[in-house]
């Protein structure tokens, strides 16, 4: 319970709440789009750089099982999400696959919030986790977009969508940052560390403020989305989180690392996936997939989900 309350009192979560409130009271608060974009570039590059530096210090055999686990879950989660949507929720092919692509991929901000959360508890997750974020971003989208193709009811251009996935700004920045950090190593990283490490949490607060504003504007769509989507947006992340806790521990991650791993596997993308889905599945409704990932799952994860995954990880670590 304490771990839950401490999460609500974090500046990140409170800034997110402030963003939502500002929209609800119709404040004129608005971050300039250029600033929002600049901060996201900064955040993505910063995680990449830090992850790359950590990766250069990590022996290969420590990384190989978590990488395998990530790829396995990257393929599994879009399929479970699709099956739930298609057969329990009775969504049509395009919408089921479109939403599944979001849940197969990963929300980088949820990942960062999870790192901040476990660090606030005094724990240190594995440094190479950003590598796993980059790996998890792609397969989920690809698998989900393949489903309608196999069922022969696509419509959009899969080639263009894949181009969008592999060359999207989030992947370029994450992978680019990882590579730069890995090549530079800890010693050369020292010169840029003050900017990319010390400013990170502050920038994250600003970013969450904007995400709160965006989320609040999605809340109006909740009525249209229906009860099933709300159920889906909460239950499927918990299901994916629970599977990820098992996989994470089998792969040898620490409790802190497992919690972060579960948070990222459970999260739904809202940067890379929407663009790819819009191109590959033009019939899928953006208001459904964005409302699910940004309006339901994201707020759930950063408030209740992350502490829950931590509790699951701690509990299951006691069983082994």
């Amino acid at each position: 319970m304490d771990s839950l309350l401490s999460n609500f009192a974090s500046p990140i979560v409170m800034a997110f709440a402030l963003g939502i409130i500002s929209r609800l009271i119709k404040s004129d608060l608005e971050l300039p789009p250029a600033l929002y974009k600049s901060i996201s570039i900064y955040l993505l590059l910063a995680i990449g750089l830090k992850g790359g530096v950590e990766l250069s210090k990590t022996p290969f055999d420590q990384v190989v099982w978590p990488v395998a686990g990530t790829l396995f879950l990257g393929v599994l989660t879009p399929i479970t999400a699709f099956l739930v949507l298609r057969y329990l929720g009775r969504f049509d092919m395009s919408n089921a696959a479109g939403i599944a692509a979001h849940y197969g991929s990963v929300s980088v901000v949820t990942f960062i919030a999870a790192i901040s959360y476990v660090e606030s508890l005094g724990l240190q997750p594995e440094g190479f986790l950003p590598t796993l974020v980059a790996l998890l971003e792609i397969p989920g989208i690809v698998v989900a977009l393949m489903i309608p193709l196999l069922a022969k009811s696509g419509g959009g251009s899969l080639k263009k969508a894949f181009h969008e996935v592999f060359t999207g700004s989030s992947i370029v920045l994450l992978l680019g940052g990882l590579l730069i950090g890995w090549i530079a190593g800890p010693e050369k990283f020292v010169s840029v560390e003050p900017f990319f490490v010390h400013g990170f949490q502050g920038a994250l607060v600003l970013f969450l403020l904007e995400l709160g504003i965006i989320t609040a504007s999605r809340l109006q769509d909740l009525k249209k989305a229906g009860v099933f989507l709300i159920f889906f947006g909460v239950m499927v992340p918990i299901l994916h989180g629970a599977i990820a806790v098992l996989v994470g521990q089998m792969a040898g991650l620490s409790v802190a690392g497992t919690s972060v791993f579960a948070a990222m596997v459970s999260s739904g993308s809202y940067i890379a996936a929407p663009a790819a889905v819009r191109i590959a599945l033009p019939k899928a409704s953006p208001s459904l997939y964005l409302t699910a990932s940004l309006g339901i799952t994201f707020p759930f994860n950063i408030t209740l989900g992350i502490p829950l995954y931590y509790l699951m990880a701690e509990w299951s670590a006691g069983l082994w």
Partner: peptide, 11 residues
Amino acid sequence: RGIRASDFEGR
């Protein structure tokens, strides 16, 4: 239509 797939990319 109102909603856009990617606010991140611009309006």
